[in-house]
């Protein structure tokens, strides 16, 4: 019993909470606790006030964002005003394409309420992947499943379908995968 109390004393409880949240993020599904720990130390944290812009559409993407607390709106500029594409809450993630390349963002992200975000810079992620093949394959696999989900969704929209069938993408096969994050309106 005393042994566990000692362990509790040296354990960073805040970091542990972040680790648990990271474990629920579909992009990092299947990673071991050790791998998640290695990934977690690469993240930065930042608090955003309501209405603050996280990134703008058209800017080169450099980082992935994970919502630790709060709500974030993803919007796309129209000729008149903006289209709200989605509102993400705790555990949601956005900006994942920045992990692949530095092409311009497809949409803008803005804090809808006081929010705390975890930020992972692409090069830090690449550095981690270099030395961790298992982690790299797992995360890239998850990312590919996410992208496959997007492609199928875009295809179904093009074909005039309003919603996607359950089980259409490999991503939906696993509970908590990225396609669950996509709004099905």
């Amino acid at each position: 019993m005393a042994r566990w109390r000692w362990l509790e004393q040296v354990t960073d409880q805040e970091q542990l909470l972040r680790l648990k949240l990271l474990g629920t993020v579909p992009l990092f599904a299947g990673l071991s606790r050790r791998q998640l720990g290695k990934l977690l130390v690469k993240f930065f944290e930042r608090e955003y006030l309501p209405g603050e812009t996280i990134f703008m559409e058209g800017e080169p993407g450099k980082a992935l964002f994970i919502i630790l607390a709060g709500r974030v709106s993803i919007c796309r500029a129209l000729n008149e005003g903006e289209e709200l594409l989605a509102t993400l809450t705790t555990g949601g993630y956005f900006g994942e394409l920045a992990l692949i390349d530095d092409q311009p963002r497809f949409a803008s992200a803005r804090a809808a309420e006081p929010s705390r975000l975890l930020i992972l810079y692409r090069s830090d992620f690449e550095d981690l992947m270099e030395g961790q093949r298992t982690l790299a394959i797992q995360v890239m696999g998850n990312l590919l499943k996410t992208l496959a989900g997007y492609v199928r969704r875009a295809q179904s929209q093009r074909n005039g379908r309003n919603s996607m069938m359950v089980g259409q993408t490999p991503a939906t096969d696993k509970p908590g995968m990225a396609s669950k994050n996509v709004s099905h309106d």
């Binding site: 080169p60 530095d102 875009a154």
Partner: peptide, 28 residues
Amino acid sequence: LLLERRRYPTHVLDSLPNSNVPVQSYVC
């Protein structure tokens, strides 16, 4: 890094030839 910002002017996507293709909900 700073020059990267200049490489892509804001709303550069609007001028891309395939910008009329329906896009996924929030890929960014």
